[in-house]
Computed example of a mutant assay.
Amino acid sequence: MSDPDQRSNSAGGFLLAVSLMVGTIMGLLLGQPSVGFLAGLAIGSIAAVSLWLKGRG
């Protein structure tokens, strides 16, 4: 059983948050903020899940 006090060194939530903000800003610049938000959500989710899978070993 793993130690409950052990914390992960990965920061998948940070990647998701940054990609959402960048996607929304890029969408605003291109006149499509909702498309930018969804693109940032997709890219951030893929990055966070891949980081999580890598950390699982």
Rank of each mutant, 00 (worst) to 15 (best):
W52D: 10
G36N: 06
S19W: 06
L53I: 05
V18F: 15
T24Q: 07
V49C: 06
F37G: 04
G40D: 13
R7T: 00
G31F: 12
K54F: 07
S19A: 12
L30K: 14
S34H: 14
A48W: 03
L53C: 06
S45K: 01
S10V: 02
S10I: 07
I25R: 09
A42D: 03
G44A: 02
L16W: 13
S2N: 10
G36F: 02
S2A: 09
N9T: 01
W52V: 02
G57E: 09
L41P: 01
F14N: 13
I46R: 10
G23M: 02
G57A: 10
L16G: 01
L29H: 11
S50D: 10
S19M: 13
A11M: 05
G40T: 02
A39H: 05
L20C: 11
V22I: 15
P33L: 05
S50H: 08
A39D: 04
M26D: 11
G44P: 03
A42C: 05
I43R: 06
M26G: 11
W52R: 15
S19C: 11
L51E: 13
K54Y: 10
G40E: 04
G31Y: 13
I25G: 00
P4H: 04
D5K: 07
A11R: 08
R56A: 12
V22A: 15
G27M: 03
S34L: 15
V22G: 11
V35C: 01
G44S: 05
F37K: 03
R56P: 01
S8T: 08
W52P: 00
S8Y: 03
M26K: 07
M21R: 01
P33F: 05
M21S: 06
A11G: 04
S34Q: 14
G44D: 02
G44M: 00
S34F: 14
M1Y: 06
V22S: 13
G13M: 06
W52G: 13
K54S: 11
L29Q: 15
G57K: 12
A48N: 05
A39L: 12
D5S: 07
G57V: 07
S34M: 15
A47D: 06
P4Q: 06
S2I: 01
M1W: 07
L29C: 12
R56Y: 12
F14V: 05
S50Q: 12
D3F: 04
L28A: 12
R7W: 12
A17Y: 10
L38V: 00
F37N: 02
F14L: 12
G13A: 08
F37E: 04
A39P: 02
S19I: 00
G13R: 10
N9H: 09
I25N: 02
F37L: 15
G55N: 11
L53H: 10
A47S: 15
N9A: 05
A42Q: 11
G23Y: 02
A17Q: 10
G55Q: 09
Q32Y: 15
V49P: 00
Q6T: 01
A39M: 12
L16P: 03
Q6S: 05
